[in-house]
Design a protein around this nucleic acid. Sequence first.
DNA 1: AATACTTCTGTGAACGTGCACAGTAAAGCT
DNA 2: AGCTTTACTGTGCACGTTCACAGAAGTATT
Lengths: 331, 331
Amino acid sequence: MKRPTIHDVAAAAGVSRGTVSRLLNGDKYVSPAARVAIERAISETGYVVNRAARSLVTQRTGSVVMVLSEPHEKLFEDPNYSTMIRVAIRMLAERDLSLVMMLAGDESDRERVVRYVRGGHADGVLLVSTHAGDPLLDALHTGPPAVSCGAVIGRETVIPYAAADDRLGARQMTEYFVSLGRRRIAMITGPMDTPGGIQRLEGFADVLGRKATSKLIAHGDWTQASGERAMTELLERAPDIDAVFVASDLMAAGALAALRAAGRRVPEDVAVGGFDDSSVAISTHPPLTTIRQPLAEMAQETMRLLLALIDGAGHVDPVILPTELVIRESA
Amino acid sequence: MKRPTIHDVAAAAGVSRGTVSRLLNGDKYVSPAARVAIERAISETGYVVNRAARSLVTQRTGSVVMVLSEPHEKLFEDPNYSTMIRVAIRMLAERDLSLVMMLAGDESDRERVVRYVRGGHADGVLLVSTHAGDPLLDALHTGPPAVSCGAVIGRETVIPYAAADDRLGARQMTEYFVSLGRRRIAMITGPMDTPGGIQRLEGFADVLGRKATSKLIAHGDWTQASGERAMTELLERAPDIDAVFVASDLMAAGALAALRAAGRRVPEDVAVGGFDDSSVAISTHPPLTTIRQPLAEMAQETMRLLLALIDGAGHVDPVILPTELVIRESA
DNA sequence: AATACTTCTGTGAACGTGCACAGTAAAGCT
DNA sequence: AGCTTTACTGTGCACGTTCACAGAAGTATT
């Protein structure tokens, strides 16, 4: 059996297509009598508007595409995405928009994304974890509005974003270490081509000044294994470390393992601070003292920016949200 | 500037729409000369086919919808989803299909999903973590093909699925405990309206027979907190427990915390076994001995089933994949 | 030489919708 | 009474594509 069209509804309600269309699109100028007749006809026939036909004439698609730019292997290690996805679906659904997901891990992926967006298949683009200098960015310059959750390095003024105040968070943790009387404070950073990588290090340096020597700084790539590696390295370079600020909880979990292997007690010998307040923070032993990022709000604000742009706002300002120190047992 | 249409391409190549359309849709009967002319015209104009227009006539949408049926709060605690999403995007992209995400946490969500699917906006439906008796299921009976990652209780014969052999996995872990000489083996299950909840308990009982008394069984809801609660409960009921099989790694992390709080050493006093081999398994202390589920393969097989059905296969058989014991330090 | 087949091409119709426009009837105003 | 305004309704066209069909040109078969 064929799906009912707007024609069928109109016939059942004894009006014309135009009137049904007006009701559907929230136009005024529909008489109360027509309104009830149409509403009844819709529920009787089980009519659902055909998005394809609508898109064809309105030049809008009713969907937003979320582009995940992580290389494939380590995609989704970060619980960050989950929140973003959930919030995006939710806020889009309210406006009857749907969320399409695409990967942009390698060149062919990126090409596909560009074709998709250029082809006018999305009303908006939601960038997640896009790295500096991603070739995608140039291609996206034209086309529907794009926003990012977390700043895109080098495009801060071009691509609106909502992000946590990474630098503030790093300062909060470092100051906390100082207040505890720790003297030799090290840091494990994220990749230096990500905002979190750069700004958390900046916050660390803000507090420690010249005491933040390169000997006390090691780099990771957000993975647990890299955290473990970096910690081992730090312990070799500076065995007298009494605190370490790790730029993510997952890496901190790795650092804990390395410290345990080296026979250091946490927090007695070495205080450990994480970042994110993700679910791993409470599954480690000891539970991690960390910096809470307001993930849900970040996602919400990102979506707010995108929706505003889709609605025709010419310009929107980035949003920076405060972080918060969460004290548990690792420091 | 307007986007080029198939007309523009045809004009640029000096042929008619029909010929371009034939080339695009892989039809034979396109002369070599026309072929090169069209291909050149496409790349010169930057033409991208308009999916809405195509959908309108083909009655296909070029997209598959993934329906996440978790209640909102605890959505995505499970890394399971991430793999499924990644694999789905990947396999769909190969066929130029896109993935749309929808939530079905509450009644209004479900209604939206039904409208969407009934409205013909998806060529296939991908169910994830759908609970027994979900009202969505009846509504989905008609419409495009639907499959599930993990069995849907009560619909095993109606909705094809790919899943891990939960029962086998549970047997593997329980037998391992027995082989270690453990005598008082307890279990923390998942919710009893999920396949993982039911079948992992069945496997446990398969091995222990009447020794699996209700005193030694507690129920959780997959969350870490519930694992901790259940463990505490078990310790009260049966203080002489020397092993516990926990139906998920996340709950096992909770159980570890409870054991630590009770002063039991792991694995010396109590051996702990998890299930999933998710990322938390290596971030706990001690790292969890667990049952590996082949998540990626499960996702792949699920997609294979769905794609086969979309291609017109009338019937496909469920796929059950073997699990594997991963020995770490908790048992 | 006539016929049939193969390979290729162009054309018109249809898919279901929104929108501009024309039109109607009633009410309000001068 | 005539004119303008308001509230509402119906109609034709366009959106960009695929598909069925008709037909042309060349080749093989009788």
